[in-house]
Amino acid sequence: MTERILIKLLEKTASVRLGVVILVLIIAASIAGTGTAYDVYHSWWFAVLLGMFGANLVACTALGIIRGTTRVGSLITHIGILVVLAGVIAGSILGTRGILSLEAGEVSDAFTTDDLTARLPFKVRLEEFRIDWDRSAPHLLHVGVMDAGVRTSIKVEPGSTYDVPGTDYRIEVSRFVADLLVDREQGIISRSDNPANPAMLLLIHHAGETEKRWVFSAHPEFSMSKDGNIDIIYRHDAKPLDFASRVTILDKDGSTTSAIIKVNQPKKHRGWSIYQTSFDVARPGWTGLEVVYDPGVAIVFLGIALMNLGVFLVLHRRFSKSATR
């Protein structure tokens, strides 16, 4: 008797029609979430939708097993999805994450998460933070000459002189500063040779006169011009090729571990993972690391493996029989 009620309940929950409706709602909500500031994905009703989706999937998987109607491939795929969802839930209940920000030489175990400070079970010392820049990025001058109606882009190199085509202007690139800083005593200096705040001193030759003009890639608005007829915007989009933190991990028992942490190369330590996430061009030597404790990740990966195995089994089955369905 109870068995029949249970099966009846399973049938209701497992309904394909219900599954389709839930899927369509999840699709609609997910799309809506990419276009609004409102956090759809962490709202209670989105969690309810995912819960209903999970229940539908559990029911039709259970029913498939009881009746022996579900094929192995789709069974494994569905179980895989459920395992992924279980991993997500485990991670959100048991896991924690936050930002560990360090200056060179600093030791800390404190990380911030949602404005709260929490502590790691070990300390981390930042030995060095390094950025490798892409120095092959071109120096571009976007030049506009009002009276001649000319707009053009010129690729320039420090030390060379260029004619502005269609005008009698000549631009000489007299100096390049990679990381410009205005010092009260020394004037304009380069803080480092990293192209963090690139600037150029241009000599603009026109009608027998020469104007000195600084142009700044990161701050075009700072450029001051005497000759309003010629407008120059400088662009040097040098991006980091790589950035890495060299750290030492200090355990409570006194043991130490050295590691280099990069993007795509996190460090795992005592169940925690440490990721390279941020840098700040204005603060050389500072690093932003993300620390994550998530026991659900392994479960999610297992689910992912099952999903892939399942869909390939479905494909294999369909193509190996001469079905016309």
Binding site: R97, V263, N264, Q265, P266, S273, Y275, T277, E290, V292, V297, V300, F301, I304, M307, N308, V311, F312, V314, L315
Partner: peptide, 22 residues
């Protein structure tokens, strides 16, 4: 579909290594 599945899920695995979240 299996190719989309592989693409989607390897993206998650990669994101887990690169950005610290799958």
């Amino acid at each position: 579909f299996p190719l989309l599945t592989l693409g989607l899920t390897t993206g998650a695995v990669w994101a887990s290594f690169a950005w610290g979240r799958y």
